[in-house]
């Protein structure tokens, strides 16, 4: 315990000492590592974020847990109903299991397809390539766009109305599919989740690419040279030299992918408020608790389920970080 505290404190004196160097007037008789100003500064800089964190994150999360045991509708006194919200959610609510499986599908799709694609693009663009920045900009543009815009763009792409939707027009125009039987990308509940995953990946790939590219740029070039001298080909260099060196970035990528999958919301919500095959835990929360329905107690129960699921990767990540810090 004391070791942890010590660890936590060490950066602060280092900063203080560093700041103190160019100021020669500093009085030497107080041999405290921290001046009063430092202490006030430290208190403010740690205290304010801590306060915000505790009040806006932990207190709110805790309130949600409490609310999940009530049938509160946003007004009036709290009426505790025990586990009723949870039993209904798990046993009878028809939208819950589809939503959960869609979230998991989202995660799988991102892990197996979107994230590797982003890494591949980053590796390709890391090489000396004429106009590399143009490609980077093209792939990164979707990340800059607001998700509302992304949703709108893809809604137009997928539109089933003849002559409106680009994809269906392309399919019928080239004669691949007859004009009367073009797929209903967003309305058909058996395929719309895939259509949305493509749209979401369009954005996610660019995000991962930029993260990974930044990491690749920081890899010491001498490592590659050494690998080349040892006769490793490009594939071997990447998998045996670059990839292991990139370990910290790899963890970031994994965590970002997991988080993006669990909090997937915008596109599905823009398309049809998350129903008819596009149920996600996040849209269920919104539809139940902040819509006209205002079933805040029930919505909170879904939120708690999502929190518990989210805790798994976070705990895994934190234990990994802490273990590596101890080493």
């Amino acid at each position: 315990m004391s070791e942890v505290e010590h660890k936590a404190l060490t950066p602060a004196p280092a900063v203080a000492a560093g700041a103190g160097v160019p100021v020669p007037k500093r009085r030497p008789r107080h041999y405290s590592v921290l001046t009063r100003r430092d202490k006030v500064l430290l208190a403010v800089m740690v205290g304010v974020p801590l306060f915000i964190f505790v009040v806006l994150i932990w207190a709110m999360a805790l309130v949600s847990v409490v609310l999940s045991f009530t049938d509160w509708q946003g007004i009036g006194p709290l009426n505790f109903v025990g586990l009723q919200n949870y039993t209904y959610l798990f046993q009878s609510y028809p939208a819950f299991w589809p939503a959960l499986s869609h979230n998991l599908l989202w995660l799988l799709f991102f892990v197996c397809f979107a994230t590797p694609m982003g890494i591949l693009l980053a590796v390709c663009l890391d090489r000396p390539l004429r106009g590399s920045w143009i490609y980077q900009s093209i792939f990164f543009t979707p990340v800059v766009l607001s998700l509302a815009v992304v949703g709108f763009i893809w809604e137009l792409q997928y539109s089933p109305i003849a002559g409106n939707g680009f994809i269906d027009s392309l399919l019928s125009g080239t004669g691949l599919v007859s004009a009367n039987s073009t797929p209903d990308w967003l309305g058909d509940p058996s395929i719309n989740i895939w259509a949305v995953l493509v749209a979401a990946s369009w954005r996610h790939i660019g995000y991962i690419m930029v993260l990974y590219l930044a990491g690749l740029k920081s890899v010491d070039p001498s490592l590659r040279e050494a690998a080349a001298i040892d006769g490793a080909n490009e594939r071997q260099t990447f998998f045996h030299v670059v990839f292991p060196v990139m370990a910290p970035i790899n963890v970031v990528i994994v965590v970002v992918t997991v988080i993006e999958s669990l909090r997937a919301f915008d596109i599905a919500y823009i398309i049809n408020h998350g129903k008819n095959g596009l149920e996600l835990l996040s849209t269920l929360i919104t539809n139940n608790s902040i819509s006209e329905a205002s079933l805040i107690g029930f919505g909170s129960a879904i939120a708690v389920v999502l929190l518990v699921i989210s805790l798994v990767p976070i705990v895994l990540y934190l234990t990994r970080v802490m273990r590596s810090e101890e080493q």
Binding site: R263, I285, S289, A303, I314
Partner: peptide, 23 residues
Amino acid sequence: RREVLKKGLIGAAGLTVLPTVLA
């Protein structure tokens, strides 16, 4: 790391507090 940690916690807890905050 710090950014990611922050994002992770906000991502997780943010969704939980969605009802209240968004409301």
